[in-house]
Amino acid sequence: MELLNDLIFNYTLRNIALGSALLGIISGVLGCFAVLRRQALLGDAMAHAALPGIVLAFMLTGLRESLVLLVGAALAGWLAALLLLLIIRQTRIKEDSALGIVLSVFFGFGMLLLAAVQRQPDAAQAGLSKFLFGQAASLVAGDVLVMAVLGAVALLFVGLFWKEFKLLSFDPDFAAAVGFPTRVLDVGLTALTVLAIVIGLQTVGVVLMSAMLIAPAVAARQWTNRLSTMVLLSAIFGAGAGVAGALISATGRGIATGPTIVLCISAVVLVSLLLAPGRGLLWTWQQQRRNARRMRAELGGGSR
């Protein structure tokens, strides 16, 4: 009851809860498409790649406003995705290596810049390293507003191009054959994923952001075969785990928010993999036992 009271009236807690709920919803929705298109690890590469963007944006402008830093992050993430496509399309290097290259080189460059910036005596750089593992407690109302606007834009586009994105996820060849501009849609969906990543950076951090794209979607996938239900469930799972993790980390001592949220959503995944009706492991295990028993009974009956 006290927690509920705090959630509504306590400024910090309200921002944390709102921010992490927003993050969960957006990454839950866009993660569904990423997972269905088997691009789960693309999110990992783009999130890591955002780090140099954040630090460069700070170095160039000297500002620490979240909007400035997030624009830098988005540009770097987008550039990473373009480079990735270039490497895969133009050389014989396969997707897995290309992901590893983009992820580690961008991230390494980010760490180089971050360390260089942090050695400067000027105190303004303090707080840049919160983007590594996330720090929900540092969210202020302005950050939440930026997240809400970006998130609304992302969701609006998903709504507008729902049919196209659905087709692209399940049968891209057919989509191309009936004349949808699949290249444009592909780039658009990737851009929206970058947006989702950027929204989560301050709360979850670049290192673990990919889990927020993958885990809610995988959990939701177990409960349904309909895309609309999956997206809805994924958003709910993401928001729930986001809020729970952020609140645990904000009330605990010195626990980074990213890992806490990731553990919460991992628990949801585990439960879904085990229990989901029809697909879950316990469910199929029981089904197999029942089948075996019926088989034995029928075979036994035949021999008599």
């Binding site: 088997r38 691009q39 889990a211 995944v269 993999l273």
Partner: peptide, 10 residues
């Protein structure tokens, strides 16, 4: 239940 890339990412 899970594809390879998602499995790594989980």
């Amino acid at each position: 239940l899970v594809k390879e890339d998602s499995a790594i990412g989980l």
